[in-house]
Design a binder for these strands. Structure first.
Length: 267
DNA sequence: TAAAATGTTGGGTA
DNA sequence: ATACCCAACATTTT
């Protein structure tokens, strides 16, 4: 479910209740949630480690512990909460970290696609990710160079985490609409001004999502209201906010893709 | 009922 | 090597 803005919101909100706490144990109710190491080693190694920082890289939540790093990927339906130990049980809370302050940090995941990783260095997991789109070092020039290195449609390229980290289906569609670019335009065929527009639009869309604490459009993610500000995502048949033309929905590499046929002409 | 859902990955093909 | 397509993962909702 979550993309960069939603994971960033989790990181910001979890810092206060998690940093400084020690993990006293973990209950693994769905062993396949544990990507690495084995569930048994995971539980043994994490016990007694203190949470030093809570940050984000792409769509991964990164918790630096006193010894290792704990990374969490929420995939489609993951949710994270900190609640007093023994609070009303959540049937989808498959991995539960017990904390030394009487709370538990729960990873709920209806669809069970999510994963947790316990590694010495975060880069073991995040090593192949592309640049952080909101980093100061990520320039329009770098985006242009990366676009020119491929001859692929913009939409699937934006979703490729090794191309750019953190952009998912919602923010890809929103950014392409802001930039006035058709999702099927080829990456190596953009003019310089179009590259600049795309760069600015990606950052605007993501920052806007963060400002609204992310988008809550299904029953899992809560708290954000960016869903009330979508320009095209999920709005097929409705008027484009810029020109009034009906928003269209097509399928591109197996993902619903929403765009304005007028503002985002093929060329 | 069938289709889709904010995500990735691995396999096969050209 | 690169690009593209599909299936798989598991569950809920429309």
């Amino acid at each position: 479910m979550p993309e960069l803005p939603e994971v960033e919101t989790f990181a910001r909100q979890l810092r206060a209740p998690l940093v400084g706490r020690t993990i006293t144990g973990v209950a693994i109710k769905w062993p396949r949630h544990v990507a690495t190491p084995s569930p048994r080693e995971f539980a043994e190694r994490i016990r007694g480690q203190r949470i030093e920082t809570v940050t984000r890289r792409g769509k991964y939540l990164v918790l630096e512990l006193s010894g290792d790093a704990l990374l969490i990927h929420l995939k489609m339906s993951g949710d994270l909460t900190v609640v007093p130990a023994g609070s009303a049980r959540d049937k989808h809370a498959h991995t539960i970290f017990h904390l030394n302050d009487g709370n538990e940090f729960r990873f709920s995941d209806t669809r069970k696609f999510g994963r947790v990783y316990l590694v010495c260095q975060p880069e073991e997991v995040t090593g192949k990710l592309g640049p952080e789109p909101l980093a100061a070092e990520f320039t329009a020039k770098e985006l242009g160079q990366r676009l020119a290195a491929h001859s692929r449609a913009l939409k699937p390229l934006l979703l490729d985490q090794t191309f750019l980290a953190g952009v998912g289906n919602i923010y890809a569609d929103e950014a392409l609409h802001m930039a006035g670019l058709h999702p099927l335009r080829k990456s190596d065929a953009l003019r310089a001004d179009e590259v600049k527009r795309l760069w600015r639009s990606i950052r605007r869309a993501l920052n806007s999502g963060i400002r609204h604490n992310g988008a809550s459009i299904d029953w899992v993610y809560r708290g954000g209201d960016f869903q009330n500000h979508f320009r095209v995502y999920g709005r097929q048949g409705e008027p484009c906010p810029a020109c009034g033309t009906r928003i269209r929905r097509i399928t591109v590499s197996q993902r619903g893709t929403h765009f304005c046929p007028h503002c985002q002409r093929k060329r």
